[in-house]
Simulated assay, not measured.
Amino acid sequence: MVDGITPERVREIVAMADQPVLRNLLITRGYHRLTLAMAQLLGQGDFAWPIFAVWASKQAGQFIREEELGAGVSAILAARLPGLPVGVAVGAPVRRALAQVARHVGGGNTIVFAELGEAFAAFSAAFAEPAARTEERLADVVGRFSEGPSLPDVVTLAADGALERQPQGGQTMLREALHYYFMALHERSPAIRAELVLLANGLCGLHEQTRLQPYIAGALSAPLTDLQGVVEGPVAAALGVVVRRAATELMMTMALPGQVLRLGFDLPAPPGQPLWPDGLARLEHPRLVQLTEELGAYEARERRLGLADRVEDWLGFGGPEAQGSGADDWSQLGDRMRYIFEYFRSRQRDASLLAPPFSAAQEQDMLAGRVPAGPL
């Protein structure tokens, strides 16, 4: 266990509904602590799902704080509609649309942490001592989560604009992931352990992206819905398109230490590293291969590559890339998961992602219940 990230602390952070910005920062910080805790357990440089959640949660913060998205909207409006007064970009209708985008992204950020944050907090605490790594202890951890398929929430808007959610389905996929992490704790073969961790990471990713579906779709549709009937004529349509475009561009960008990924393009290799780390260049575990087939990744993806991708791969333009992995439509679960799985696979041993997301001073502010000043 690292720095007191317990299931109880996860629930305390999730309950901070009246402080969405601080809650997001604490979620991001919490994922980093869970990353370090899981790294202590697994060893050997194969990193578990929370290491990817750190940077996704930090990216979500740009929506939740609204000002970055608002600046993007203003910039796009100035370029596309130079005759439109700048004040329109920050007027009440657009602010309302931005607030709805923030609510959807914040809702998704929170529900994922509520489930997976608790799972990794419980797992890392239960198995901190090697002697405690028993099947009986695993049953206790897994028993926290319900049987049933991963399903998206039913999300509706209340009269005051708040999100109301009705959870659906269960957590069988998350339970399965915890089993594979447990197997990795006991596995001595580096290659097999790497595949077990990737399989668990992929299952966590598929579960959380399924749960996120209405929040992502809602964030992208909110501008078009909110601006209808509020601003008249072609200006309304233009504003809706611009806000959605800015949200989509921000949503399909992932800032990592030393690199910015554009999720609509094929995934590049980590800087100075091969595309796939040792042990993951060729996947053999039957359940892992089955998952890649379901996600349209790995050999299934390679079989469907078009001529342009194949020529680019043969000629080696732009360095190693996961050809055909770029997402066409981030609102589609299949598009997201094709990219996300390859991202997990390529960065599973990328130690640069262990970097803390915030400075020591910023962390002290958050622990004191304050939102740090300045850029985050």
Rank of each mutant, 00 (worst) to 15 (best):
T156D: 14
I192Y: 02
D153F: 12
E208P: 04
R244P: 05
Q168E: 15
F120S: 02
V142P: 01
A126P: 05
Q168A: 09
P190N: 12
V230G: 05
Y181E: 07
E135L: 12
A246V: 04
G229K: 08
R244G: 00
Y180T: 05
V197Q: 11
L206E: 13
A194L: 00
V155Y: 07
M254K: 05
A246D: 01
E147N: 12
A131P: 00
R244C: 07
E135I: 05
E118W: 00
D153E: 13
S124H: 06
A128C: 01
T172A: 14
L227P: 04
R175H: 05
L151N: 03
A194H: 14
A139E: 13
L256W: 02
E187D: 05
E118C: 03
A122W: 09
Y181W: 13
A125K: 01
L151T: 07
V197W: 11
L178P: 03
H179V: 14
F265I: 04
L261Y: 04
G148N: 07
Y215S: 08
G161K: 07
L220R: 07
M251G: 14
T172C: 01
T134Y: 08
R144A: 06
A126N: 03
A126W: 00
G264T: 07
V142I: 15
A194M: 04
A246K: 08
Q209S: 14
G169M: 06
A184G: 08
G229A: 10
P190R: 13
S150D: 14
H207T: 09
T134L: 09
T172R: 13
G229L: 10
G117C: 08
M251R: 12
H186M: 06
P152E: 11
G240C: 10
A132M: 08
P190Y: 12
A222L: 10
T210P: 08
A246H: 08
A177R: 11
V235M: 14
Q209D: 15
Q168D: 11
